[in-house]
C-alpha cells in the first residue's frame, strides 16, 4: 500500500510523514480565545496532494485549526497562540511572510457559501484582479478553467454576468471553490463544504475534491463519517482541542486503536 511507503513511523495512534511529502506541518500548536483554550499541543503533518479529513464533535476546534492554517485569526485581537505551523518548511508566522500571499497559497472555503454581491464572473476574477492588472483574455481563460475545475461551467457559462446571489446553494458553494481555485492555491481548506447541500450537490462536491487531489493538498472538515470515508486518504480525530488519533482513513474507520475514536465514529459518544 502506498500509505505504508509514505509513512515513516506510526507509533501509537499517529502516523507521520517524511518532510519531503509534507505540505503543512503543525507542531505543538495551541490556541486560546481570550483565556479560553480551543486547541492544545497539537502536532500533525498534512501530506501533499492528498485529502486529509478532520473529524470530531462540534466545538472540538476543527474550524479553529483550519483558520489557523491561513492566519484568519489575525483579525481577532482576543486570540493568542503557541507552537509553529510550517507550509513547505516555512514558518507561516515568520515576520517576512506576507499574510495576503500566504492566504493566496492556502485557500479556504467556508462552511456557508459566501459569494460576493457581484456577477459570477467577477466573483471568480476577484482574487486575480487583486494581483494586479492582467490581460482580459487571460482573466477569461482562468475564470473558465476555474469554473470547469469546479464542475460549474456548464451550468453558468451562459450567464456569467448574472448575480452570483441568483445561484442555488450548491452552485454557490462550487462557485466559491472556483473563486478560490482561480488564485492558484497549493492547499485548499474546506470547512464542511457540503453541510448545506442536497445529496446530489454533495456528490458533485465530493467528486470535485477527488479530482483536485492531483494538483492540490486538501484539508476537509466534515461531520459526515461516510463523506470522510469516501473522499479522504487520512483522517484526524479531534476532541476537546486535542488530536486523539490520526491514521489512514481505511484504518481509522475499520480498525481504530483508541476506544474514544471508535465510540465517536460508531455514534456512541461519551
Amino acid at each position: 500500500m502506498t500509505v505504508m511507503q509514505e509513512t515513516r513511523s506510526s507509533p501509537g495512534a499517529f502516523i507521520d510523514f517524511s518532510p519531503d511529502v509534507t505540505s503543512l506541518e503543525i507542531r505543538g500548536f495551541g490556541l486560546r480565545y481570550g483565556d479560553k483554550p480551543a486547541l492544545a499541543n497539537l502536532s500533525l503533518r498534512v501530506p501533499r496532494h492528498r485529502v486529509t479529513a478532520f473529524i470530531g464533535p462540534s466545538g472540538c476546534g476543527k474550524s479553529t485549526l483550519l483558520r489557523a492554517l491561513n492566519r484568519l485569526h489575525d483579525l481577532n485581537e482576543d486570540v493568542t497562540w503557541e507552537g509553529t505551523i510550517r507550509l513547505e518548511g516555512q514558518d507561516i508566522h515568520a515576520p517576512e511572510v506576507a499574510v495576503a500571499e500566504l492566504r493566496r497559497r492556502v485557500g479556504m472555503v467556508f462552511q456557508a457559501p459566501n459569494p460576493f454581491p457581484m456577477s459570477i464572473y467577477d466573483n471568480v476574477a476577484f482574487g486575480l484582479r487583486l494581483q494586479g492588472r492582467m490581460p482580459k483574455r487571460r482573466v477569461d481563460d482562468i475564470v473558465e478553467w476555474a469554473l470547469r475545475s469546479s464542475a460549474l461551467w456548464d451550468e453558468v457559462k451562459d450567464r456569467l454576468r448574472a448575480s452570483a446571489w441568483s445561484l442555488s446553494g450548491g452552485q454557490q458553494q462550487r462557485l466559491v471553490i472556483a473563486r478560490t481555485l482561480a488564485v492558484g492555491p497549493e492547499v485548499l481548506l474546506l470547512d464542511e463544504p457540503a453541510s448545506a447541500l442536497d445529496p446530489i450537490s454533495t456528490l458533485k462536491v465530493e467528486e470535485l475534491i477527488r479530482n483536485l487531489k492531483s494538483s492540490l493538498t486538501l484539508v476537509l472538515v466534515t461531520h459526515n463519517m461516510q463523506q470522510a470515508a469516501r473522499v479522504s486518504d487520512y483522517t484526524a480525530f479531534l476532541q476537546d482541542g486535542e488530536l486523539v488519533e490520526y491514521a489512514p482513513t481505511d484504518t481509522l474507520f475499520t480498525n481504530p486503536r483508541l476506544a474514544r475514536t471508535e465510540n465517536y465514529i460508531t455514534g456512541r459518544m461519551a
Binding site: 492566504r103 459566501n114 460576493f116 476577484f126
Partner: peptide
Amino acid sequence: IPESQREGALALGATRFEMLTRIVLPM
C-alpha cells in the same frame, strides 16, 4: 455586512484595505 464576506475576501489574498474598498464599502 456578514463577517463571512470579509473573511471571503481576506481568504482570497486581499489586504484589509482591498477588502474594505472592494467588498465592504460597495456593500
